[in-house]
Amino acid sequence: MSVRAVWNGVVVAESDDTVVVEGNHYFPPDSLRREHFTESSAKTLSPWKGVASYYSITVNGVTNPDAAWCYRHPWPLARKVKNRVAFWNGLQVLVHDPDDHGRDGR
């Protein structure tokens, strides 16, 4: 299964090794196309994951502020998402499963 994060028509991350938590795909750090990412000063606190740090994403001159987040020092229950990046705020996360050949159960 390959997963892509797309913003403004450009793939900004792609991996076959995402971790899904609360419906969000968390991408490994080496799957990011770093030229599109700028660290943000924004932070939020999850009651069970810890403090999230954010990135703004810029593609073709258009910036999507705070559109990606990661947990650099997650709390123990969330250790599987450490340093992985998830997306929101208009980014498309597209899942391609090569084993799914369009079968619809009929």
Rank of each mutant, 00 (worst) to 15 (best):
S40N: 13
S41P: 05
K43C: 00
K43Y: 02
K43V: 05
T44W: 00
T44C: 04
T44A: 08
L45M: 10
L45I: 09
L45D: 07
S46L: 02
S46Q: 03
S46C: 15
K49Y: 02
G50Y: 02
G50C: 09
V51T: 14
V51C: 05
A52N: 00
A52V: 00
S53W: 06
S53K: 05
Y54E: 00
Y54V: 11
Y54I: 05
Y55N: 04
Y55G: 01
Y55I: 07
S56M: 07
S56E: 03
S56Q: 05
I57E: 00
I57K: 00
T58G: 01
V59D: 01
N60E: 14
N60G: 11
N60D: 15
G61K: 05
G61R: 04
G61T: 06
V62H: 08
V62F: 04
T63K: 07
P65R: 13
D66L: 09
D66G: 04
W69T: 02
C70K: 12
C70Y: 14
Y71P: 07
R72F: 06
H73L: 08
H73Q: 14
H73P: 00
H73C: 03
P74W: 00
P74Q: 06
P74G: 07
P74A: 09
P74Y: 01
W75D: 11
W75S: 06
P76T: 08
P76F: 05
R79L: 12
R79A: 15
R79P: 00
K80V: 12
V81S: 07
V81Q: 05
V81M: 11
K82A: 15
K82L: 08
K82G: 08
N83H: 12
N83G: 12
N83T: 10
R84Y: 12
R84M: 11
R84D: 12
R84C: 12
R84N: 14
V85G: 00
V85D: 00
A86C: 09
A86P: 07
F87L: 07
F87P: 01
W88I: 01
W88F: 09
N89E: 13
L91W: 04
L91S: 13
L91N: 09
Q92S: 14
Q92I: 10
